[in-house]
Simulated assay, not measured.
Amino acid sequence: MVPIPGTRKRGRLLENVAATRLTLTPDELAALEPIADRVAGDRYPDMSSTAAARE
């Protein structure tokens, strides 16, 4: 796991930095493995057509 950089608030930055010190147990990693391939796609939906629809 890697914290996601890019934040606007200091508190969130500190959370991300603190996440680098986490160590997952083998059991925790095994529990995450089956769902790892479901993580995909963009963070935000494609909104490029929204502005064109308003014109």
Rank of each mutant, 00 (worst) to 15 (best):
P26C: 03
E55R: 14
D27L: 14
A36V: 14
L22I: 09
T7W: 03
M47E: 07
T25V: 05
A18L: 12
A18S: 11
I4R: 14
N16P: 00
E28K: 01
P45I: 03
R8L: 11
R43C: 05
P34E: 10
A52T: 10
T23R: 14
L13P: 00
E15S: 07
E15R: 12
P45R: 06
A51M: 08
L24E: 01
L32Q: 02
A31K: 02
E15L: 12
D37V: 11
V2Q: 12
R10F: 12
A36E: 09
T23E: 09
E28P: 00
L32A: 12
T7P: 01
G6T: 06
T7A: 14
I4C: 05
P45S: 05
R12F: 04
S49R: 15
D37W: 08
A40I: 08
D27R: 11
R43K: 07
D27W: 00
R54I: 05
I4E: 07
A51C: 03
L29W: 06
R54Y: 11
D42N: 08
A40G: 04
I4Y: 08
A40L: 06
Y44W: 10
P26E: 15
E55G: 10
L22Q: 10
E33I: 02
N16A: 15
A19F: 04
N16Y: 01
P3M: 01
A52R: 15
P3S: 05
R43F: 09
A19P: 00
V17Y: 02
T50D: 07
I4L: 13
M1A: 13
P5F: 00
E55V: 09
R54Q: 12
Y44V: 12
L14F: 10
A18K: 13
S49P: 03
L24D: 00
S49C: 03
D37F: 07
P3N: 02
V2K: 13
T23V: 13
L22Y: 07
T20C: 10
M47D: 06
T23P: 01
M47H: 05
D46G: 02
S48W: 05
T50Y: 07
I35K: 05
L32M: 14
R8K: 13
D42G: 03
R43Y: 06
T20S: 08
G41A: 03
N16T: 06
P26Q: 14
G11H: 06
I35F: 15
N16L: 05
G6D: 10
L22V: 10
M47G: 00
A18N: 11
T7Q: 15
D46M: 08
D42W: 07
E33P: 00
G11D: 09
L24Q: 01
L13S: 04
A51Q: 13
L32F: 03
T20L: 11
T50G: 01
R12E: 13
A19W: 04
A51H: 06
